[in-house]
Amino acid sequence: MDTLTLILLDGIAFASWLFLVSAGLTFAYGVLRILNIAHGSLYAIGAYTGATLAGLVLHSGANPFLAYPVLVGAALLVGLALGPLLERGFLRRVYDQEEVITLLLTFAIFLILEDGMKLVWGVSPIIVAEPYALLGQLPLAGVTYPVYSFLLTGVAIVAGLALWVVIDRTRFGKLITSVIHDREISAALGVNVPRICTVAFTGAAMLAALGGAFTAPMVSVTPGISADVIVLAFAVTVIGGLGNISGGAIGALLVGLLRATAIQFFPALDLFVVYALMAVILLVRPEGLFGGVEVRRI
């Protein structure tokens, strides 16, 4: 029984993180049809900025609880600074090109940002552990749980709900949906498509940075964290259905639980299960668990 509880708790905690780091990827793909490899870099920049700013707040002797809003602020900052820049400066130029070109463009941006971060933050780890321990622990199922992992789940839920509200309940969301369905017709109807694209990509960048910022207190922010997160985020995105936010949430939950189970019972399999699940899903339901059927080109 305890083991089951552990699997649920660990699975949900990991799933929350997975959802946070992959939601932006899913969203960007949904709106812009871009599989953004540089998503991992935005995640890492979010982590670096979050760690740096939170570190400043903590060292200044201010109320340590200020660190949490600062993490959110850091994510918004990164998104606002880099989102429009990348979208207007680069991505916009290749929307009409083949998928492989956009993929490579984001790969190029990834490479540049990778060294760019090194030039700004160096290679020594940036460490801010305080926000992780600050919220205390809960004894559950025979082990102690940091409250922070519940905070992470909270942030993931809020981010997911915010996305849902924006897309399904606002005028802007309707515009996004129309752009998703047909860019040309939307433009003909007077929708400012370029603006929608910029805003959507900025939103995706913010989500990536948010994932990074809230990961920063748990890990050491070092070079190389971007590359590792990308494939994992891809896997989750594919499992849930490319471009489908609620699918992404279920995908994250599935991967999280599967991995937690693997660690409890077959620890040797934990990496393998994620990719195996991805392949199986692609084989059985290529559009993902919740993806729509792709329209074939005639």
Binding site: L6, S149, T222, D228, I263, Q264
Partner: peptide, 30 residues
């Protein structure tokens, strides 16, 4: 460089070994 050890720590807390040997380094160490 997985960076996330929550599930592993749960397992180790549940099994309560006397000694845990680990060769994590760098980012994983922190």
């Amino acid at each position: 460089m997985q960076g996330q050890f929550a599930s592993e720590i749960s397992k180790l807390q549940a099994d309560k070994p006397d000694v845990i040997f680990t060769s994590v380094w760098g980012g994983d160490f922190v």
